[in-house]
C-alpha cells in the first residue's frame, strides 16, 4: 500500500475533477452556451453503456473465463435481482435477493 498511495491519491483527485467537470459543467458556463442535440444524445446513452460494460464482464467473466451457462451462479443471481428491481424498484430488495440466490446456489447447487 505504501508504494501505491500516490497512484490512488492522484487517481482520486482526478476522479473528483471528473465529477466537478460534469455536474457543475453548465452551471459554470455563460447562458449563451447550450447542448447541441447530437451531444445530448451521446451523453444520454454513454453512461448506460459504461455501466453495462462494467457489469457484464463482472458477472459473465468470473475468474477470467467467459461463462454464460447455468453453472454461473453470479449470472443467475443477477437475473433474479433484475427481476426484483423491475417489479418493485427497491434497491434493498434487489441486492438482498441477488445475494441470497447467490449464497443458496453456492451452498446447495
Amino acid at each position: 500500500m505504501s508504494e501505491t498511495w500516490p497512484y490512488y491519491v492522484i487517481g482520486i483527485v482526478g476522479l473528483t475533477a471528473t465529477v466537478f467537470a460534469t455536474r457543475s459543467s453548465f452551471f459554470m458556463l455563460p447562458a449563451k452556451y447550450s447542448l447541441p442535440p447530437w451531444l445530448e444524445s451521446l451523453m444520454r446513452f454513454a453512461p448506460a453503456c459504461a455501466l453495462v460494460a462494467v457489469i457484464a464482464p463482472g458477472i459473465l467473466v468470473p475468474g477470467g473465463h467467459v461463462d454464460v451457462g447455468w453453472g454461473n451462479h453470479q449470472l443467475l443471481a443477477a437475473v433474479a435481482s433484475a427481476g426484483v428491481f423491475l417489479r418493485w424498484r427497491n434497491m434493498l430488495a434487489t441486492i438482498t435477493v441477488g445475494l441470497l440466490v447467490f449464497t443458496a446456489l453456492r451452498l446447495w447447487a
Binding site: 492522484i10 482526478g14 453512461p47
Partner: peptide, 21 residues
C-alpha cells in the same frame, strides 16, 4: 493507467452534464 480510470469515470458521469444543462 490513470487516464483510462478518469475516462471511465467521465463517461459514467456524462449524464450529469444533461442534468446541469
Amino acid at each position: 493507467p490513470l487516464p483510462v480510470v478518469w475516462a471511465t469515470s467521465l463517461v459514467v458521469n456524462l449524464r450529469f452534464v444533461i442534468f446541469a444543462a
